[in-house]
Simulated assay, not measured.
Amino acid sequence: MPCADCYRGHDHLGPVHGREAVLHGHDVYIAEPQNRPLSQTGLIVVLSDAFGWDTINLRGVADRYAERTGCKVYLPDFMYVSGTSAPASIKSVIDRVLSEKGFWGWLVKPWLILKAAYIMVPFSVRNNPEKRYPGVRQFMDDLRCSEASDLKVGVVGFCWGAYGITHLAHGGLARNGKTLIDAAFTAHPSEIKVPEHIEDVKLPYSMVIGDIDFALPLKDVRKTAEILERKKDLDSEVVVIPNARHGFAVRGNPNNKEEKEMADQAEDQLVKWFGKHLV
């Protein structure tokens, strides 16, 4: 099950500029650059955090990625097919669980914990990333064999989505014989096991994470970096941001200067990474 920090964070305001469509059997938010030509070489697919494809936070991220890279960005719904994403209301519940103190906290925390578990446990069962991965892989296969047959494909995974993009980076092939993706990027990953899931990475892989992120402890981050560095023919990077909490790239406080700088650093890393691998 994801840690409590997977269900915390700030809700961002719009507007967002993309559109919704149905693509390869999934609802998809599609973002395209507004002020620059559309890339003819690359396409990006984003795998969401626990809150799913339809948050303003994630759609805003997709819009910015499209604008800064020039690539079309797909944000598919990999949860609603037979389940639901985590509702935004759980953020305030988790915040109270972690912040209530004193006698009142002693009284209300059991109820708050039960309320949180009522959401978190069913979500974790319905949307176990291993259970959802076949749908992710099929979408990427269909994509690679159609509109992305002659494009380079980058994938992004936040939190929950890290499992999917990490397994896609293992180098599996689509029906047309091409690798499903060309490069992967993850910010504050959860649901990945080290060393098991990292040892099989064969395609360019970039990670950014905070040093106080409980979803992937620092010892596992260091082990990840060691494993990737041993792969001499693999382009990879692991960037650790001091004091960055889980979710900082998507759910940080945009009005907090330090948190905004952390999110900007992650975005800059992605833009540079895909500028290198999707051209």
Rank of each mutant, 00 (worst) to 15 (best):
A88V: 15
I44F: 07
G161P: 07
E226L: 08
Y74V: 00
P129E: 09
E229H: 09
D63G: 10
K115E: 11
K223T: 02
K178L: 14
R68E: 03
V28G: 06
T179Y: 14
A225Q: 12
Y205N: 06
F158E: 07
T186F: 09
V73S: 00
Q265P: 02
H26W: 07
L173S: 05
F139G: 03
A116I: 07
P254W: 12
P189M: 14
K101M: 14
L98W: 14
A169Y: 12
N128G: 02
M79C: 08
V250F: 12
S149Y: 03
G171T: 00
G18R: 01
T55V: 04
I165Y: 15
D182P: 06
T41P: 05
S206E: 08
G60F: 11
A148T: 00
F123C: 03
L168N: 00
F248E: 08
G14C: 08
Y205C: 05
A183I: 08
M120G: 06
L98N: 14
R144G: 01
W106Q: 10
A184W: 12
F214I: 14
A263M: 13
G102F: 09
A148R: 03
L107R: 06
Y118F: 09
K219D: 12
F139S: 03
K152Q: 03
C145D: 14
H197P: 07
S206C: 10
V46N: 03
